[in-house]
Amino acid sequence: MSTSGPLDRLELCESLLTWVQTFGVEAQCKTVEDMTNGVVMAQALQKIDEVYFNDAWISRIKPDVGDNWSVVFSYGILGQHINDFTLPDVSLIGEHSDPAELGRMLQLILGCAVNCEQKQEYIQTIMMMEESVQHVVMTAIQELMSKETP
């Protein structure tokens, strides 16, 4: 498969922020700052797989509590079969709204979305998005796929 060159981490963050808005989650998700408490990502993950990310799990996510990231990250993300991918530093997202780290985190959630049972719905939504966003999303998926373990 061809690759499209290294990802610009800021562009990745911006494009995936646009993508995550297509989930129509309750929490506002227009800016990097909106994402820092982890609530949007938890709600997006629940839409991706409401059996795995069930109500008991999401009840551990509190908008005003600082340890949401450990819940989202350890339970939601680490199960993916990828190697050699620099995992996001969630403390930088929570404390400094770091867009590069947020981009990595959203990239992993994108990986969940395009591998889940309802992937058709998510992929078709991506295909309706602006071409520049699609291009970044494609590159992000290609990067993940290149690091997938069998």
Partner: peptide, 30 residues
């Protein structure tokens, strides 16, 4: 005209990629 051709090519690459993703076997979630 060249721009239109380049645009169509990009569109084709994107469509090919996402269509191949659609036909890929679904992995385990999470």
């Amino acid at each position: 005209d060249a721009n239109m051709k380049a645009g169509a090519a990009t569109e084709g690459v994107l469509a090919n990629f996402f269509n191949s993703l659609l036909s890929k076997k679904t992995g385990s979630p999470g």
